[in-house]
Design a binder for these strands. Sequence first.
DNA 1: ATGTGTGAAGAGCTTCACAGCC
DNA 2: GGCTGTGAAGCTCTTCACACAT
Lengths: 205, 205
Amino acid sequence: MRIKHPPEETIGRLLAYLRTLLCLQEEGVATVSSQRLAELCQVKSSMVRKDFSYFGEFGTPGVGYNVDEMIRQLRKILKLDKALKAALVGVGNVGRALLLYPGFKEEGLRIVAAFDNDPGKIGQRVNDLVIEDVDALKKRVKQKGIRLGILATPVSEAPNVAERMAKAGLKAILSFAPCQLNMPKGVRVQCVDLAMEMARLVYHL
Amino acid sequence: MRIKHPPEETIGRLLAYLRTLLCLQEEGVATVSSQRLAELCQVKSSMVRKDFSYFGEFGTPGVGYNVDEMIRQLRKILKLDKALKAALVGVGNVGRALLLYPGFKEEGLRIVAAFDNDPGKIGQRVNDLVIEDVDALKKRVKQKGIRLGILATPVSEAPNVAERMAKAGLKAILSFAPCQLNMPKGVRVQCVDLAMEMARLVYHL
DNA sequence: ATGTGTGAAGAGCTTCACAGCC
DNA sequence: GGCTGTGAAGCTCTTCACACAT
C-alpha cells in the first residue's frame, strides 16, 4: 500500500480513532486491538486495519496497537503534531463561541487573531484577543504566518469576506455561512451548515 | 426508480439544491436546468437528475425544473414542510450561539426550550426563552411534543445528558460534544465536531 | 434544438477471508 | 491461540450516453 491515496472518509475516521485513543490513554490502557478500537468507534475491525494500512504498518500481530505510539503516528499523519494558527472573521454569536471553544486547543489549533467590520466591536477583548478591523486581515496574516481561516459572518457578507480571506493568503477556510463559496484553486473550503445538519436529522425521523 | 432508497449523500445534496433554489427564487428566476443548478452547487448535472429521480419526475424535457415547484417538492421530500420543535441542553457559549442562530428558522426549525444544570443560568432569559433545570426536560418534551434535541454541554457531561435526552423521548439528537454517544436503537445521533472539521482542513493543507 | 430520466458502465469504498507473524 | 496486513470480492455511489419528451 502507501501508493494509493486514502479515501476522504478515512481521514474522518482517523480523527475519530485519535479521539478514542486519547480516551484510552487517559484510562491507562497500553495496547488496543483493531477489534476493540472498532467497537468503540462503531465501525468494522477490518476498516480500522485498512485505514491504518494506507499509511504504514503500526500493529503487532497477536498483540494489537500500542496506544501511545499510535497516537503519535496519527498526529503525524493528520499533521496535528505541530501547533497551527487560525484567523477568525466575524465575531457575532457563532464567532464568539468559537473564540471561547476549548476543543481546538487539544488538536493544536489556536485562533491568534479575530476580525470584524463593526466599529462597535473593534477594540473589544474576547479571551485575550483584541478584535481588529477586517482591513488589517492581510497584514496580520502575513505578519503572523497564519494559514487557516474561520468565516463566521452572516451569509450576506460571506462571499465577499471569503474572497478577502483568500486574497489575504489563507489556504483553508472553515465556513459557518450556509452558502456556496467559490474560491480560487489552491484554497480549500469546508462548510459547517448547522441548519443543514439539523435538517438531515429531521429527514431520518 | 423510487423503490431503491437513495444514498445518504443524496440527502445532503438535496439540502444544498434547496438552499440554491431559494436564492434563485429570490432573484426571480422561474425555471432552472439540471446543468445550471449543478454548476451553482458544484456537482455534475447527471448527479442532480439522478438525485431527483429517486423521488419522482419533476422536470420538463427541453425546459428544466420550475423553481417554485421544486422548492415545494424538496421541502416535502426532506420533511421540512411543517415546523419542527427542538430542545437545547447546555447553554454555554455554543448553546447560546445556537439559541441566537437565525438559520434554523428558514428550515422551519424552532428551539422551544432550553435547559442547563447551572443554578446561576436557570431562570435567565435568552432570546425570549427562559433557561430551565435539566430535571424538567422530560416533562417539557412530553408537554410540548418535542422530538429533536440539541446537545451542547461539555464532553464530560455529554454521555450522561444524551442518555437523559433519549429517556425523555427525543428521537434525534444533534450533538456538539466531540465524543461517541451510544444511544438506544431508534434514537439517531448526528455529531458536529468543530475541532474535527478544522483538523480535516489541516490535513489537506 | 434543448433538456429530462435512466439503464449500464465505471469508479470508489468496504468487507471478507486468509497468509503470515507474535 | 490471537491478531495484523492485504489482495480479491462485494457493494455502493457516480458518471456516461442515449432514448424520449417538449
